[in-house]
Design a protein around this nucleic acid. Structure first.
Length: 863
RNA sequence: GCCCUCGUGGCGGAAUCGGUAGACGCAACGGACUUAAAAUCCGUUGGGCGUAAGCCCAUCCCGGUUCGAGUCCGGGCGAGGGCACCA
């Protein structure tokens, strides 16, 4: 073999082997246990970013490991190819989104290939192709039939200058990103998917998903947000009389109601606004306010009285009705009962507007006072100043109050969900057309199955002023499927989350032009290991779970959960720098162009731009993104050091589940390690013939090397196979190589032991750095490629050791280390510990009260 | 604001079920090789005290449980992710 490690030649050689042998083309084989390893498919944004490299390397390590462990592995790849960035690029460059997208796919596919991922490219799919998205349309029609898809109005961000709908991302400080115009909200008809019909199923199943991280299940559970409470009615005589409904989880505080607050969109608000100009203006302001929940929740709480009153259902007292900007029309009843004494938001609201505060819950005997209030007012306690309910605790009070309300017909227990139905209509061009035709006579008519797919034209270039489909007569013109008359095609397209809600099924049968899924789905699905960014913990994963359930109910798939095991990788972060001019938009700068200095004396960090020497501000260490210009291009890394170094570095720098702060240092270290591995194999082979290992004749030093090798193998196997902590697996092999460098190599059995250790090191790293290990394995004289080699099992005999080292604590402080025979009994260990001179110093003259022995680890002596 | 996660040397991180804190790597420093540099190899490296044996301090902060806490519990501070039209 060559003495020098040359990544270019090595990687070409390995990749050629995999191509020539079609190594990663997966075949259904009922006789073999399958393993479906899937990484979230990329949006073809132009080039791979570090998040991709991290994601796909994790998947590839798992794939190659499972394959070496005998499983029939499928690892496919595709493109999440519809989306907003393509339209933005089109506007900037005048290129149709389709061309931009396909060019990006071609480039990124080349990048993925150069990284040596074990992908089955025969199953590649692209969501912007009609062969794929026709099934979005087909299933949408099934949803319409089942009442799971339906139409209702929803509100959108409207840019009055460009006369177009904006995504939340395109609204900056309440203004359109291109025009700077104040964004308005508009109510328009949209299609919704009734995910709430599956809320209970989606929630309950979370308890039976051991392969998912707790944090993701917790996030989904909170998102679905089941709450048990009471729906109350406040009767009134307004507008002919009626009942104002409000939902509460704290019915025990009902006697503390001093006002009611309704959302700006609530009918009572609209009623009161007639003839009240000030109120109408206020409601209009609320409507214009933020649509994003994070902004809604942090904005100042404001309100205005409607001048209307409702009656308290139990006391009959008059309760004023206010409009509050913190009340959400989309949750519960769009109205809340205001109990300032026992709800933080109500408290703030009441303080601001001078509304009365009435304590009705007592916690640990505390009485209301302005100063002492915060910190316990929302706690559970017993009812006070509540008439017949006095003295009742939370549960008892709710039961009693709900029963009384129910008897009066003014309330009942009810479960409310935070989850809302999924609005999928997008007023955009580059997405899957919604298969609907609008007919003057027949209304909205679904496109019949035999007319699918409704094909999106690929030659349009959006200009920022509305959906270009509206100006495309070839697309717009249609015949009504019902009456045959002239009709207009729906121009809204589907949310791109629809595309990604079922692509994992399609990889099993990407070539089927007759059906959405087929029997191959039964073999491959569910996905055994799904890998993707933590940022998808809620939306994408929840939508996919919902979509799968709908297909299950149609009998198309035989399972409810599409992903048996989920691995959420951390984000790749880097510091971002920006300037915000007095007027105008924030401008970000490439970190490579920023010089950061730290003043030792003042501890003050300053960052200046290389170009003009003036200061820039730091946004902190945040996700790499195009908009922040803080991304590092992995291609430079690959070009300079090769794919193996890029892969090794990404896997070694941090545990894959944690966020990873990018640093340029360390890449050299990864490269250096591969060179050392290469040299170790080269030197070993150059040293001459290696005899067969004779386990019975080994001396202590040889046994020690063997033990270390098999300990490393055990750790690598567990770290990759179970724990997915690739960083520690790599560290274990590094330790082995360090030990080997110091081991004697004179005797023939020295070399035999070294050969075994080297092969373990090469095999153990094969999933991480597949190219170099491919070439090294061949150099070691093996007839099969390493990718076809079975994983090795640990020799338990090799792990045996005659002695162990144990720590000795006296009163909880570490005082000595002792070496005892591995099979020593407790009495022996105890005696050895007490005999240690340093232990004696601390024990002498005291009474030994207790000795705790943790076998092979620790002795704890209490005196 | 709400939900979730994280916080350990100069830096990335290790310590897997409450049991020897700092594995492995980076950086730095010292040395070898070299005319020199790069590359490579060897060594040192949490802080303080001590000639040494060793001792004290140390896992964001405060408190608790325990023979024993980086790990568990309560409270705080800081950072990151998500918040429904970015993907």
């Amino acid at each position: 073999m060559q003495e020098r490690y040359e990544p270019g030649a090595v990687e070409a050689q390995a990749q050629k082997h995999w191509n020539d042998h079609r190594s990663f083309s997966a075949q259904e084989d009922p006789g073999r246990e399958k393993y479906y390893c899937l990484s979230m498919f990329p949006y073809p944004s132009g080039r791979l970013h570090m998040g991709h490299v991290r994601n796909y390397t994790i998947g590839d390590v798992v794939t190659r490991f499972m394959r070496m462990n005998g499983r029939n592995v499928l690892q496919p790849m595709g493109w999440d190819a519809f989306g907003l960035p393509a339209e933005n690029a089109a506007m900037a460059n005048g290129v149709p989104p389709a061309k931009w997208t396909f060019d990006n796919i071609e480039y990124m596919k080349g990048q993925l290939k150069s990284l040596g991922f074990a992908l089955d490219w025969d199953r590649e799919l692209t969501t912007c192709r009609p062969e794929y998205y026709r099934w979005n349309q087909w299933l949408f029609l099934r949803m319409l039939e089942k009442g799971i898809a339906y139409q209702k109005t929803g509100s959108v961000n409207w840019d009055p200058v460009d006369k177009t709908v904006l995504a939340n991302e395109q609204v900056i400080d309440g203004r359109g990103w291109r025009t700077g115009a104040l964004v308005e909200k508009r109510e328009i008809p949209m299609y919704y998917l009734k995910i709430t019909a599956y809320a209970e199923d989606l929630l309950d199943a979370l308890n039976h998903m051991p392969g998912w991280p707790d944090r993701v299940r917790a996030m989904q559970s909170n998102w679905i947000g089941r709450s048990e409470g009471v729906r109350l009615g406040f009767p009134h005589d307004i507008d002919g009389g009626g009942v104002l409904h409000a939902f509460t989880t704290r019915a025990d505080t009902i006697m503390g109601v001093t006002f009611c607050a309704v959302a700006a969109e609530h009918p009572l608000a609209s009623f009161a606004a007639r003839g009240n100009q000030k109120l109408a203006t206020f409601i209009e302001e609320c409507r214009r306010g933020p649509a994003v929940e994070a902004e809604l929740a942090t904005q100042e709480k404001r309100g205005m009285p409607t001048g209307l009153f409702v009656r308290h259902p139990l006391s009959g007292e008059q309760v004023p009705v206010w409009v509050g900007n913190y009340v959400l029309m989309s949750y519960g009843e769009g109205a809340v009962m205001g109990v300032p004494a026992h709800d933080e938001r109500d408290f703030e609201f009441a303080k601001k507007y001078g509304l009365p505060i009435k304590q009705v819950i007592q916690v640990d005997g505390q009485e209301y006072s302005d100063e002492a209030w915060q910190g316990w007012y929302a706690d559970y306690g017993v009812c006070v100043h509540s008439g017949k309910y006095d003295g009742l605790s939370y549960r008892a009070a709710i039961d009693s109050i709900a029963a009384d309300l129910s008897a009066m017909g003014l309330g009942e227990k009810r479960t409310t969900w935070r989850l809302r139905d999924w609005g999928i209509s997008r007023q955009r061009y580059w997405g899957c057309p919604i298969p609907i035709v609008h007919c003057e006579r027949c209304g909205a008519v679904p496109v019949p199955d035999e007319q699918l797919p409704v094909v999106l034209p690929t030659n349009l270039v959006p200009d920022g002023s509305g959906n270009p489909l509206l100006k495309c007569p070839e697309f717009l013109k249609a015949d009504c499927p019902k009456c045959g008359g002239a009709a207009r095609r729906e121009t809204d397209t589907m949310d791109t989350f629809v595309d990604s809600s079922w692509y994992f099924l399609r990889f099993a049968c990407a070539d089927n032009s007759k059906a959405m899924v087929d029997e191959r789905v039964r073999y491959w699905l569910p996905v055994d290991q799904y890998i993707g960014g933590i940022e998808h913990a809620i939306l994408h994963l929840l939508y996919a779970r919902f979509w799968t359930r709908f297909m299950r109910d149609l009998g198309m798939v035989g399972f409810s959960e599409p992903f048996s095991n989920l691995f959420t990788q951390g984000m790749v972060l880097k510091e971002a720098f920006f300037r915000k001019p007095e007027a105008g938009r924030v401008e970000y700068f490439d970190p490579a162009e920023v010089i950061v200095t730290e003043d030792q004396a003042t501890q003050r960090r300053t960052a200046v731009l290389r170009a003009d020497g003036a200061e820039v501000e730091s946004e902190g260490v945040v996700t790499m993104s195009k908009s922040r210009r803080n991304g590092i291009d992995p291609q430079a890394l690959i070009d300079e050091f090769g794919a193996d170094t890029a892969r090794l570095f990404m896997m070694f720098a941090a545990p894959p589940e944690q966020s990873l702060e990018w640093s340029d240092e360390g890449v050299q270290g990864a490269f250096r390690f591969i060179k050392r591995l290469w040299k170790a194999v080269h030197d070993h082979l150059s040293a001459g013939a290696v005899p067969a290992l004779d386990k019975t004749s080994l001396n202590d030093a040889q046994r020690a090397v063997r033990r270390q090798a098999h300990q490393a193998l055990a750790k690598v196997t567990d770290d990759i196979g179970r724990r997915r902590t690739f960083n520690t697996a790599i560290a274990a092999v590094m330790e082995l190589l360090n030990a080997l460098a110091k081991a004697p190599l004179e005797a023939p059995q020295d070399r035999a032991v070294a050969r075994e250790a080297i092969e373990i090191a090469v095999l153990g790293l094969a999933p991480v750095i597949p190219h170099v290990t491919h070439v090294l394995w061949e150099a070691l004289g093996h007839p099969h490629a390493i990718i076809d080699e079975p994983w090795r099992s640990v020799d338990p005999e090799a792990l045996l050791s005659a002695t162990v080292e144990m720590g000795v604590q006296v009163n909880g402080k570490m005082r000595a280390r002792i070496t005892v025979p591995a099979d020593a009994d407790e009495a022996t260990v105890r005696a050895a510990a007490l005999a240690d001179p340093n232990v004696q110093r601390f024990v002498a003259g005291a009474v030994v009260k207790k000795v705790i022995i943790v076998p092979k680890k620790l002795v704890s002596i209490v005196v």
